[in-house]
Design a protein around this nucleic acid. Structure first.
Lengths: 248, 248
DNA sequence: TTCCGGCATTTCAATAGGTTAATCGAATGC
DNA sequence: GCATTCGATTAACCTATTGAAATGCCGGAA
């Protein structure tokens, strides 16, 4: 759905995030904002933005709401391979590949900006820092993806879930989407199970355990981390993979 | 170790691979080859090329041999998050991030080319296709990483191992490193366990099972896939994620 | 030749996590 | 108001995978 009317402020998460990745000049920010405002869209929860096997010809920037990147096996087993959180880029440069290897689906209702390939290439050609910021976005996505690999491959259930909570919290923080020690967490247990590679039943057991230990509160789609250090400890969080989110 | 003397042919895997990612002009190929020959190195098996937490200031192209990308938890649990195979790029653009989030270690003795950041940037600025090829390299790495996520999260032991075998075979094929239905597979069972998120014991059992079913032969560091279709079937291989390896 | 170390293999007991299915509450549609 | 659906929760049972430890194998060093 194409967005009508004034939407000032929507681009804030993106700009904030990009500014952390690379310090941007005033002109670069204006150019980015301009490109965003030219192609604003909204979608409801549970809609596919792109499906595995399709070609893509544009870049999307998520302004608000959450997306899932996921893949499904023939027999229906599904793995959410990553979340896309507000301010993050959906598929920078993906038009270079023939087709997408995974699907992207809205977890909530979302607002996003769509920048067509030609427009995007003009944009990054116009400013070096902007191009680098998009590149960082891609690299950071890869780093997160690798962390998910060790999460799925080597962490036990409790550690996995705890880790995911920590990661989401730390990814939301720099764009201003955490409120004290709470943040939105609009994900069903089924989705959470598919993100952590667990069964729904065991995921539920695991969440109970985290609740019982007092580390987190999770209700009404809101996650509260009662003791971040303790949670990170329980999750065996790696120190380096989200570094680029921090300013020097 | 800096390589001395004539090393013609070493760059073949890289050039072959890049040419598949993007058709390259004669000049681009020459420039790439030139850059490679300027910084040839070798290393023995088991050496760290870069360690987690270090900054990187160059791009590496693997000419021969295998590398592991891996991460380790505090208590020693290790996950190999990907292999780097001949012809593949180690860390294009990684100098944009502060530090590396994972370690890269040689699995075998290797030859690689190291291109310093400034040299690399000059190289990609000189030719659009070359820049795009490096970009594709990065994107393809991400796609593979996502496939590893579903492998670790949702495939059962036998499927996981079968999938890894298929993937490696398909990644080696386009650079000319498969011989009929065989390819080199210089990975100990311990490493393979760390790559598939299994214990060594269970990995061993799983390999026995694959052998017993006649799908593969694995001995003396050589993998033979007796029936590729059957193996892919057992692995529930996804159709799209390696697409870019194929020419149109 | 012998000793040694790295790797593969086997065994066996223990368990983390999966499967199935039933229940419950809240929200939604009619 | 009632039926329906969706998500969360619980229970009972089951099995895939782990962990520890011992054994065997092979190639290299002395």
């Amino acid at each position: 759905m194409r967005v009508q009317g004034s939407e000032a402020g929507l681009a804030q998460a993106v700009i904030r995030r990009f500014n952390i990745l690379r310090p941007l000049s005033v002109e670069a920010i204006a150019a980015l904002e301009q490109a965003i405002l030219e192609g604003l869209f909204r979608a409801g929860a549970g809609e596919d933005l792109t499906a595995e096997g399709e070609p893509v010809d544009s870049v999307r920037l998520l302004l608000s709401g959450w997306l899932f990147r996921h893949k499904t096996l023939e027999d229906g087993r599904r793995q959410i391979v990553n979340f896309v959180l507000p301010g993050e880029t959906c598929d920078a440069y993906a038009y270079l590949l023939k087709t997408l290897d995974h699907s992207v689906t809205t977890a909530t209702s979302v607002a996003y900006a769509e920048i067509k390939r030609a427009r995007f290439e003009k944009l990054i050609a116009s400013d070096r820092s902007l191009a680098e910021a998009f590149m960082c976005e891609t690299l950071l996505g890869s780093a997160i993806q690798r962390e998910w690999a060790i999460n799925l491959g080597r962490r036990a259930a409790l550690e996995r879930v705890a880790h995911l909570f920590c990661e989401v919290y730390e990814r939301l923080r720099p764009v201003g989407l955490v409120d004290g020690n709470s943040c939105s967490f609009p994900v069903t247990q089924m989705d959470l199970a598919d993100a952590t590679g667990l069964s729904v039943v065991h995921l539920n057991r695991t969440i109970q355990e985290l609740r019982a230990s007092g580390l987190i509160t999770l209700r009404e789609r809101t996650l509260t981390i009662n003791d971040l250090d303790a949670l990170k400890n329980a999750a065996l969080v790696s120190p380096n993979y989200l570094q680029a989110y921090r300013r020097d």
